[in-house]
Design a protein around this nucleic acid. Structure first.
Lengths: 238, 238
DNA sequence: AAAGAAAAGATCCTATAGGAAATATAGACG
DNA sequence: CGTCTATATTTCCTATAGGATCTTTTCTTT
């Protein structure tokens, strides 16, 4: 922890190089589903649109390729990755269960140190969830509201991941992050997930507070299995 | 695997783009420990050495950054990553255990389909191991021999990973591959690991053959824990 | 009319050039 | 003699240009 990576908030103002900003910009475009799956991502076109040269675009694309959001064919260019099929969805959940359950196992002994943070994240998630359901009763749900809710949900899970203290597990989870976001976006319909997620998060919080090292593992597994089940319910309604 | 449609014998000879070949070349340099940790990896210098322009070098570096073998500081360039410390080594083993144990759990029910391949991989690994021990008795061990042994060892594990049928787990394992290779390189001393690894691999093979779904999980866990223990024995002798 | 071939257009890929920042070096001052 | 400053060099970073490849369109032929 002494040489840890806690300095995530101060990346030297604007000292990240153009390639990182281009990466963020294209990532936003992809995550907001502004482009159809399979659509070509022309290097030159993107360069003109973002008012930069092809080189930083090219670097950002290499990085994006690793997230699974774009596919590359040598000498043919990049394309928006096709949507996740049922098998990929299943494998994604399997991978998430593996990572989060293991993270819970590692974090459980040190529950006391991060319980306040987890409690706070849970309350924030609960609040954001209420805003979503309120908006749903009124009809349209602003994109910003949905975005905030996803962020809050992700933050809750990240508290546990970070508490596990394994940088490789953290990296793996971050890699799956983009695909997870895309998956959630496609399965947002229905208010059920919001309320049930809050209940399950509460159960996870209680499990960590109980002191029993095996309870959080079971609670977390139940949560992700619950998300999976609710996703499958909605997926036929394409 | 099932969705593949481009299994022609020689579909893309030399059709991988310069960036991929540059990546392989630099990866070889890094894995062979020709450069000291912390040494600068100058874009221009590498471009001149490899007789290419900076652009493909730059793309390959972005890719290498994700393997953990090089570090990047914006506006300051790339450097060879520092050697793995004790904590990182521990976390790396934790991550590998998580991945491989889960892979074994997923693969166990389909053991019959990949048992022959696993058997063959085991025999090859055993053979390569004998070559290493033979060479050790004679004094020097050729680099090629060590390389072949590592490949055989890795191939054995890959059979199980592939059998798990989860592309995300496979990707994660591949990401850890470079670091794992570097770790093994630093802990190669001692012939004990070669013979013990063969014994443990045999146990894994038997566990899969037994049909009991929980045996392979335990055997695989025992194997990696064994590797970890032997690594710790050698690490003080830096 | 359909299928195949050839040419035009667009795109990717690599190379070269110049500006901005960081590191190393040399000199001046306390 | 040590420290600080200013200069020079190296290096990274971005932009522009040209050759190679793929895609699309058009035209010819059966």
């Amino acid at each position: 922890m002494a040489a840890g990576l806690s300095d995530r908030s101060v990346p030297d103002i604007d000292r990240r190089g153009l390639r990182d900003r281009v990466y963020d910009r294209i990532l936003d475009i992809l995550l907001s589903s502004e482009m159809e799956p399979g659509a070509r991502l022309s290097i030159d076109t993107l360069a003109k649109q973002l008012k930069v040269s092809p080189t930083p675009i090219r670097e950002a694309m290499v990085q994006l390729e690793r997230t699974g959001l774009v596919t590359r064919e040598a000498l043919k260019g990049y394309r928006v990755a096709p949507p996740l099929g049922p098998e990929q969805l299943d494998e994604l959940f399997e991978a998430r269960i593996m990572l989060e359950v293991e993270a819970a196992r590692l974090a459980a002994p040190r529950a006391a140190s991060f319980l306040p943070a987890l409690q706070q994240a849970h309350e924030h998630h609960h609040l954001m969830g209420e805003r979503v359901t309120d908006a749903m009763r009124g009809g349209e749900v602003p994109i910003r509201t949905i975005h905030d809710y996803f962020d809050a949900d992700n933050a809750f899970h990240l508290v546990i991941l970070d508490a596990a203290g394994n940088r490789y597990v953290q990296d793996m989870y971050a890699n799956l992050g983009a695909l997870t976001h895309r998956m959630r976006q496609a399965v947002i319909r229905g208010t059920s997930d919001v309320s049930e997620a809050a209940v399950e998060h509460a159960a996870i919080l209680e499990a960590f507070a109980s002191g029993d090292p095996s309870s959080p593992v079971a609670a977390l597994r139940a949560h992700i299995e619950g998300v999976r089940a609710r996703s499958l319910d909605d997926s036929p309604g394409t």
